[in-house]
């Protein structure tokens, strides 16, 4: 009897207290506003969004290529880190990267096959799965920015006259699936030659994550494309990374055997 009363009292007092505690935890959900778009007059005859996206993929991710790439990541405290790597691409969805510098990452390798992405750690002597949206070597690109580049496959595109300018068309991309590395992307392509000049990348709930500037357009053995991308981190605006293509050869046809897990670390 004694115990039952005590248990009853304990339970009822706990219930009152839990109710009070529970109510204290209920917080109002944060509202997110869409970024404002600046209205500009619509230009005259425009290519379709699909044509522009195809043009983007053609210069940013040619079917096969081998490239020597350098990335400099600048951080909040003003320090920077310089990476050099060899990138190899075959067909739609096969990528390899070999890091040569700095010494902390020399010997690391990356492999993409379709939606799968691995990094090979020389000290662990094995490959580890990575996610598309993870940052690429702690810089301001994510893995898919470097190792995917197939916007036609990942996004639906439509022209957006609202964000277009005098010199550039604006294409609005929305993710087809969760595998896409961003929920929404805005791309600006020059009207003169359909070369990409800028990009804005949004995450879930419409938050602006990164802004890219494509610059130093030049010809790589016949393929004209941006030579550098400056990627700004909009969540931490002191951080940015510059990726520069020192060479790019689209005339290669690497064997499929280079794009399997067993080939990593060899």
């Amino acid at each position: 009897m004694h115990h039952r009363i005590r248990r009853f009292l304990a339970t009822s007092l706990s219930l009152v207290t839990t109710a009070i505690t529970g109510a204290a935890f209920a917080a109002p959900p944060a509202a997110k506003a869409a970024p404002p778009a600046t209205a500009r007059p619509a230009p005259a005859p425009a290519p379709t969004a699909g044509e522009l996206l195809a043009a983007y993929d053609a210069v940013m991710g040619p079917v096969n290529f081998e490239a020597q790439v350098r990335m400099v990541a600048y951080r909040d405290d003003g320090s920077s880190r310089d990476y050099t790597m060899k990138v190899l691409k075959k067909g739609d969805e096969k990528f390899r990267i070999w890091f040569a510098a700095p010494s902390a990452v020399a010997g690391q390798e990356m492999l993409r096959v379709g939606d799968n992405l691995w990094v090979y750690m020389p000290n662990l002597k094995r490959a580890i799965r990575l996610a598309n949206r993870d940052s690429f070597q702690g810089g301001d690109f994510n893995n898919a920015d470097v190792l995917r580049v197939n916007y036609q496959k990942d996004y639906d595109a439509k022209l957006d006259p609202a964000c277009a300018s005098e010199q550039a068309w604006c294409v609005e991309l929305s993710a087809k699936s969760k595998n896409a590395s961003y929920d929404r992307v805005q791309l600006w392509l020059r009207k003169a030659d359909k070369q990409p000049v800028a990009g804005a990348y949004y995450g879930g709930s419409g938050k602006l994550l990164r802004r890219a500037t494509f610059r130093a357009h030049k010809s790589y053995a016949g393929l004209t494309r941006p030579g550098e991308i400056v990627m700004r981190n909009m969540l931490n605006t002191k951080r940015y990374s510059i990726m520069a293509w020192e060479s790019m050869n689209t005339g290669v046809n690497p064997p499929a055997s280079r794009f399997v897990l067993d080939d990593m670390g060899k």
């Binding site: 990541a73 902390a104 750690m121 000290n123 580890i128 990575l130 070597q137």
Partner: peptide, 19 residues
């Protein structure tokens, strides 16, 4: 059967891993 791995950007931002 492989051990797990802990990955993180090191103090300089480079990807690093340990078992």
């Amino acid at each position: 059967k492989d051990p797990a791995a802990l990955l993180a950007p090191d103090r300089d931002g480079a990807l690093s891993g340990e078992n």
